[in-house]
Nucleic acid binder design. Structure first.
Length: 459
RNA sequence: GGCGCCAUAGCCAAGUGGUAAGGCAAGGGUCUGCAAAAUCCUCACGCCCCGGUUCAAAUCCGGGUGGCGCCUCCA
């Protein structure tokens, strides 16, 4: 498999540290609020990466953290009048609800920063001891000038960063670019004991500490949104490699943004949709399908119209499955040769996914397969082969994490009216049948007379 | 100012040297009491513009134009 490595700025063949194993760390959410669909993208992408690596035979260890202590958490907890722990627990639970809807499986580890204070302190101490960090009045800063490779991920030299001049220069740090590893406690904030007094970890250090704890000092893939390249991931590299002297992550993967009207969606801009809100109107599996419909590194514009398009596209997959299911029970015995179709699906799918997780191309391969299936099983033939064809489709959908929800049950009254209509049709009393259909539509349901029988859908 | 990304049909979107995947929409056929659904077929002589390299370019190089991002919390 080839992966676009931000560090190398090109696609590279994936060679794991340990043969047959893939160790992945993805930056997770700060649990101070419901997450928005911009946040959802990396969750879906790295979940898909994990599923695919498993599909092609890797033993995957996947870690995604929860940031449960930082300025935003503290501010929100104070505003809500709850403890930091209560706020964190609440939104961790909400994360799992939304993630489940999006088909995002639980990681092998979901470490919390506040449960790893000891590991964090140990790492900070290591950096202080070897000269990469220094303490000032209970704060500990990373001395960026001590790490010559600083800037290698984002492709910026120290001079460039200085020229940026958007950093507060007038403070106690040695270099304006130095960042906090440990922050001295302020009055009323949650804090932990440390060699530098009471305080709390900086944002970047938790990811270094927790990724290395669960995956080792050098692991395979580190992922996150493009906006984390600088400074978050740059700082993680400085911290981790500064401490260990070894390479940190071998492959850096960064997903593109979700845009609204071509503008980046973000909480600070206020132009965001939470996953929770979208779930009120659409099945979240549509959101996943929509995201996987374009390459993970490209920006996606989000709109309801595009979600509707994705929904319509999914219907095609759903119908194909329903048709195959029908044929399994009711089809004719005429044989349909499926081996070639299935192996074409698998090889096309792998070809696309092996090319830097090209899920858009992979979905194209699924639709090509569906067309072949529709033609091969024409006129409901192939009862004994439909099961295999369906199984092959489902195994690919499983790797993509696309779940096709069964139709929900309809109210009793609607079902009764539909039955009455069916009887009227059999008696060729079409006027009555149409009248009953109208009444059903007034109740918000629509009827389809398919060869497989009458289908009732919510409008 | 520094670093970087993007531009493919009405909409979405693959494709990084060999003659434009796929989906939605649209048009036509089949099926159906009708309708809807389903299904099949059709649908870019051209990939923002101008130069260049090459037997061959959407794909490589140079120059434009337009859009976006990072350099500050952010997925």
């Amino acid at each position: 498999m080839k992966i676009y490595n931000t560090m190398a700025r090109k696609k590279q063949e994936f060679v794991p540290v340990e043969q047959g194993k893939a160790k992945i760390y993805a930056c997770g959410p700060t649990v101070y609020d419901f997450f928005h669909i911009g946040n959802a993208r990396p969750f879906i992408i790295f979940d898909t990466l994990r599923r695919y690596l498993e599909y092609i035979g890797y033993d995957v260890t996947f870690v995604q953290n929860f940031t449960d202590v930082d300025d935003k958490m503290i501010a929100r907890a104070q505003k809500e009048g709850v403890t930091l722990a209560e706020l964190g627990q609440k939104f961790i639970n909400e994360y799992y609800k939304d993630a489940q809807g999006l088909g995002v499986k639980e990681a092998d580890y979901h470490p919390l920063a506040t449960k790893h204070i000891g590991d964090i302190i140990k790492l900070v101490k290591r950096l202080v001891d070897n000269g990469h960090a220094y303490e000032v009045d209970g704060d500990v800063y990373y001395d960026v000038s001590s790490f010559p490779d600083y800037g290698k991920l984002s492709g910026q030299s120290m001079e460039d960063l200085k020229a940026g001049a958007r950093i507060d220069v007038a403070d106690i740090k040695r270099n304006p670019e130095d960042f906090a590893l440990w922050k001295a406690a302020k009055e009323g904030e949650d804090s932990w004991d440390s060699p530098w007094g009471k305080g709390r970890p900086g944002w970047h250090i938790e990811c270094s500490a927790m990724s290395m704890k669960y995956l080792g000092e050098t692991f395979d893939i580190h992922g996150g949104g493009q906006d984390l390249v600088f400074p978050h991931h740059e700082n993680e590299i400085a911290q981790s490699e500064g401490a260990t002297g070894k390479a940190f992550a071998n492959y850096w993967m960064h997903n593109g943004y979700i845009n609204i009207d071509n503008q980046k969606m973000s909480k600070s801009k206020g132009n965001f949709f939470t996953v929770r809100d979208i779930a009120k109107k659409y099945d979240l599996s549509i959101v996943r399908f929509f995201m996987l419909s374009s390459h993970y590194r490209n920006p996606i514009n989000f709109s309801e119209e595009l979600i509707e398009q994705a929904d319509a596209a999914m219907t095609r997959i759903k119908t194909c499955r329903e048709n195959l299911n029908f044929i399994m029970d009711n089809g004719s015995d005429e044989k349909v040769e499926t081996d070639d179709m299935i192996s074409r699906l698998d090889s096309r799918f792998r070809q696309q996914m092996d090319d830097d997780l090209n899920t858009a191309g992979a979905i194209g391969a699924v639709f090509e397969y569906i067309k072949e299936v529709n033609l091969a099983f024409e006129d409901n033939k192939g009862r004994n082969n439909a099961g295999r064809a369906l199984e092959a489709l489902d195994s690919i959908l499983e790797v993509l994490g696309i779940e096709l929800k069964e139709e929900q049950s309809v109210p009793e009254e609607v079902g009764r009216l539909a039955q009455e209509r069916q009887q009227a049709r059999e008696e060729k009393n079409y006027a009555k049948a149409d009248e009953l259909r109208d009444r059903i539509e007034e109740l918000g349901y629509e009827l389809k007379d398919t060869p497989e029988g009458v289908k009732i859908n919510k409008k």
